[in-house]
Simulated scan of single mutants.
Amino acid sequence: MTQRVELATVRDRLAVDEVVTEYAVAVDDGDWETYRGLFTSDGRADYRSAGGIKGDAKAVAAWLAESLRVFPVRQHLIVNRRVRFGVWEQDTGDTARVRADYVNPMGAAAGGGDGSAAAPDVVRGGRYAFGMLRTDEGWRLNEVIVREMWRRLPVRPAAPAAP
């Protein structure tokens, strides 16, 4: 590879990584306008493995806004990002696939009012598959597939034994 090609690849890798980060921040902050703006006009997301829906970015954003309302405290940690750029015969390098693991703690409240943080009510983990396209506006998502692999729910205290 020439230095020019290597530099372009590094720039693309950073730009793709930024889209993944913006995706996580948009979901955590409930910024559904930004969420929708990260997708191509025909972009779709599939949250079925996490109990959600599959649909276009607008429909999925509406579903997320409603279903995450009970969890105002959210934090997506997206790690182990593996980026692969398109190298097929017809591809000019304008596509990318990203596989990344995630841990997603969510809570119903920020804490007890004394400045302490509350433990999350639900913690989920799994893997994302992001499909991206280079557009005139930069890299955009054309596909997001969530593969939830595990979920930890709050431990409920056992009911007292009957006397």
Rank of each mutant, 00 (worst) to 15 (best):
A62K: 10
A158M: 04
R4L: 11
T92I: 10
D56R: 01
Y128V: 15
G30D: 08
A8E: 15
L153G: 07
D56T: 10
V70Y: 04
A110H: 07
A57L: 10
E66N: 11
M1H: 10
T34Q: 09
A8L: 10
G52E: 14
D121A: 12
T34N: 07
A26Y: 00
V70T: 14
P154W: 01
A26K: 01
R81E: 13
S49C: 06
D101M: 07
R82N: 11
R140G: 07
E6D: 06
V20K: 04
S116Y: 06
D56V: 00
V83N: 13
E18M: 09
A59E: 08
V70I: 12
M149I: 12
D42T: 13
L64S: 02
W32K: 01
A161I: 15
D91L: 09
A161T: 12
R11Y: 14
K58Y: 01
A162E: 14
N80L: 09
A8V: 03
R134P: 12
D42S: 11
R151F: 01
G113S: 14
E18S: 09
W139E: 10
F39A: 02
Q90V: 12
P160R: 13
E143Y: 11
V83H: 02
P105R: 06
E18T: 13
V25I: 15
A59S: 07
Y23Q: 04
T34R: 12
R147C: 08
A117N: 06
D91V: 10
A118H: 13
V19M: 05
T40F: 00
R156E: 05
W139N: 00
V20P: 01
R11I: 15
V79M: 09
V83F: 00
D42H: 08
V25A: 05
R156M: 11
E6R: 12
V5F: 02
G55R: 04
R81V: 15
L7M: 09
